[in-house]
Design a protein around this nucleic acid. Sequence first.
DNA 1: GAAGTGATTGTGAGCGTTCACAGTCGGGGC
DNA 2: GCCCCGACTGTGAACGCTCACAATCACTTC
Lengths: 338, 338
Amino acid sequence: MRSTLGRRLPVMADVAREAGVSHQTVSRVLNDHPNVRSETRTRVLQAIDKLGYRRNLVARALVTKHSRTLGVVSFDTTLYGPASTVYGIEQAARAAGYFVSIVSLTSIDRAGVRDALDYLADQGVDGAVVVAPQRSAAQALADLPSGIPTVAVEGGQAGEVSVVCVDQVAGGRLATEHLLALGHETVWHVGGPSDWLEAEGRVAGWRAALEEAGRAVTRPLAGDWSPRSGYEAGRSLASMRNVTAVFVANDQMALGVLRAFSEQGVRVPEQVSVVGFDDVPESAYFSPPLTTIRQDFGAVGRHSIEVLVRQLKGGLDERERLVVPPSFVARASTAPPA
Amino acid sequence: MRSTLGRRLPVMADVAREAGVSHQTVSRVLNDHPNVRSETRTRVLQAIDKLGYRRNLVARALVTKHSRTLGVVSFDTTLYGPASTVYGIEQAARAAGYFVSIVSLTSIDRAGVRDALDYLADQGVDGAVVVAPQRSAAQALADLPSGIPTVAVEGGQAGEVSVVCVDQVAGGRLATEHLLALGHETVWHVGGPSDWLEAEGRVAGWRAALEEAGRAVTRPLAGDWSPRSGYEAGRSLASMRNVTAVFVANDQMALGVLRAFSEQGVRVPEQVSVVGFDDVPESAYFSPPLTTIRQDFGAVGRHSIEVLVRQLKGGLDERERLVVPPSFVARASTAPPA
DNA sequence: GAAGTGATTGTGAGCGTTCACAGTCGGGGC
DNA sequence: GCCCCGACTGTGAACGCTCACAATCACTTC
């Protein structure tokens, strides 16, 4: 864009002239080519410094066909989970020497994912990671050959693309088994939106743990991740007699559940135990502090970049599937039944 | 890169040949140039469709010197505020036809901001918005001429750059005046980190409201935005006799305060009233639901893009300063003193 | 009927880099 | 003394697009 002076920004040829070499030698210095006499190298470096030269990455991308830019497609980066994942992705990508171009979707359907990927492809990204926690998005990815190397985060079964995800089933198990171990007869569940793979995995883990223990599997209550939906589920649960333990599919809804219980005079953990999922920074300060399942979003982001970069470098077409284990965080919202 | 077939991706010349026109005519069709016969236009469009041609934006950027990419520099996009702002920015930028390249800083000091901006400039962004809520970042912006059009979000006094921000002082006032209006003798304050401009503005508003009402200005307690720091401040406050109203500089810390009060048997709002700041989605479900000051992060993001695009288009060098007013959200954490 | 006008199209150069290919130079082996 | 080889450097052509300019054509206009 024009320097602060009216002068044109220096280009490689200017540096070459200044250093008394050819433009190619300048290029070699810039690209750490071994066969450059060290004296020549310093001369070029000095010229670069003197002129304040900066290599034009757009021109470079034109010829190399690599932009060193990675695309990220995500859904509602306002939520803690996606935001943390994207943060991890960005850090890892930059560390690996890539720029990150992002597009946030308001609705993550088939068309949306395709458009976003096309959009990024137009821009010339070398690869993309799609944070696709919804079944529709995951399917969109599996079906359409995006043309560019792609990694899915939380993207369900690895079909056409590599996948990095947290073991949601294990997480659901962890939560449920903890409650059963405390002596609860069975565990109720407040689930996330049914089209989210994460919600699906958590229910599955909960159900499996219950069935393995030979306990009654109650019908899960449906939420939409929001505190409000948790609140409503909490009101329903509070009105039931036999509820002593609840596994809520995320911390935000758990907050709503806690709130509803508190309003209805249901004491946690004395009367009912509650376990959340995510371990958002706030959950340690809920009333009571929330026992929850921790997901390492940062690790997921980092891994997704590792996989993507490996695919870019190797050029190999093997699909990977990397699963990050969740962990259990004990706090004050669970106790043995009264 | 490379189509699924081994074949080279079609370029403008291929389309031209297919349509029986010159490459320039293809370019004209692509750029909606008026002087193209409609019959020619359809022929070109058909050729484009048939070949699956997509214009190479990198090549275009090389000659136009415009990448149609905007950079975003932000600090810890894991936090709700920055995440929401960045989300708003991204949506607005895409709507305006720009790509968004993002870099998240872990520490937002002078060098960090400069590096990030240089990094983005290298990539060839047309402009940048820096979410710079810390004094050091704002200063870094004011001092160093970044070379590219830049807009600061929450960036303090407009010096060298345009600024879009929320009126933090008004927010602090709103909170404090509400508590005074309820009949509280004075209002205590739990502040954010002292080098944050937002924290500074909120204290200033609180102090101004107190002084105008002729009330005692107590020494603010220091926090770092985290629930933990709020919790600690809350413990201190709970141990004091004369505290009846507290204005906490953000909702997360307010959560910690609430938690500490609850542990110490201090009832909110019966014994102490609490007001937060931000209106995070969770705050309506705190115990009790938190009265707070709402910031419209989305609007801030949108405005910052508007200002930036105006600067890009107009080419004019005028600096703007756009202030978004906060609003008061009444919930259940405040009441008249006992 | 000559010249002017506006719409439509084509030609060639150039954006700033990297790539492929040629040189040049000095020294070791015969 | 000749040749070969490796280290170093230079030359010219892409990359795929847009820009400036020229050319053509059908009408008007006087």
